[in-house]
Write a protein that binds this DNA or RNA. Structure first.
Lengths: 149, 149
DNA sequence: TTCGTTGTAAAAATTATAGTTACAACTCAT
DNA sequence: ATGAGTTGTAACTATAATTTTTACAACGAA
């Protein structure tokens, strides 16, 4: 099964905050770009806020970045939105038979391998900052704008 | 969300076939070690069979390895049991607004990063063979046996 | 021909995601 | 202070995937 779109939505939100710093980023406005319901946005934004990545003003409304783009990695976002319980990307079957030598020992061996696989994946996310992603995105936008007029 | 336990069950099954080559591996027998229902075993075994990793005899019953342990990587098992549609570990939200510059371009940028992350994870799985895993497992079993008497 | 087994379908239980409605609490401009 | 617009959150619904379970036709070997 797939990793929840909360992650991609979180990245989308932070990108919007970065690229359009002057706008009033209400959940309604953000939802318009993401293509979902404002409540979904508020929930993701709640995670980002808790993780110290975004500020959200209650009442008058509007979200802003709480950190420099250089200081936010994709892993920060990934962890913030809680898509995978830490260290548990893989689900290991839960009742191996302890009376069978294989059943009694397979779990720890499997977890070791899975941990490495997961760490490699997270390492890539940790190596990419929102600054880099937003730069690529901005270039992408500019290129299309230049091409289409 | 987590990657289905079909993967860990698949590895468990192949380990049993390797470590106890003389036994009659019916789905009932395998289910006893894995701690699940025989039908679950038959389904996973069906995937392993289709991928050319295991042989299953209908009628009289019993599964065996269809390849040398050196020639089965964890990635082979991972792909065989179909836990993640190829290239889609991450779910990207599906209706970004094409009228918004960010909405129109975020998807392809995101997919690039996600592809790299996923490839890193799969690279680790590809680097581990069932031979290595079974060796670690056998050592584990032997150590415990020596310690407990 | 009988026994034990596989392959598979179908249904149920469980769990997570995602969308939606609703509303109290909050901020700010007037 | 009050009203308009917004957030935070709960609750409900719909959807989808997983896992377990029951059932049974087809199969293989003694």
């Amino acid at each position: 099964m797939q990793i929840s779109s909360r992650f991609s939505i979180g990245v989308h939100i932070l990108s919007l905050l970065a690229i359009r710093p002057q706008d009033h980023h209400t959940s309604e406005w953000l939802a318009g770009s993401v293509g979902t319901n404002p409540v979904v946005i508020r929930r993701v934004l709640g995670h980002l806020k808790k993780a110290g990545l975004a500020n959200v003003k209650a009442g008058s409304g509007g979200a802003t970045l709480a950190r420099e783009l250089d200081e936010i990695t994709l892993l920060d976002v990934y962890r913030a939105v809680d898509v995978v319980e830490e260290g548990n990307l893989f689900h290991v079957h839960e009742q191996p038979n302890p009376a069978c030598p294989v059943g009694a020992n397979i779990e720890q061996v499997l977890r070791l391998m899975m941990f490495k696989a997961q760490a490699a994946m997270e390492g890539v996310l940790a190596a990419v900052t929102m600054r880099e992603l937003v730069d690529v995105l901005a270039r992408e936008i500019e290129e299309k704008r230049a091409a289409n007029g």
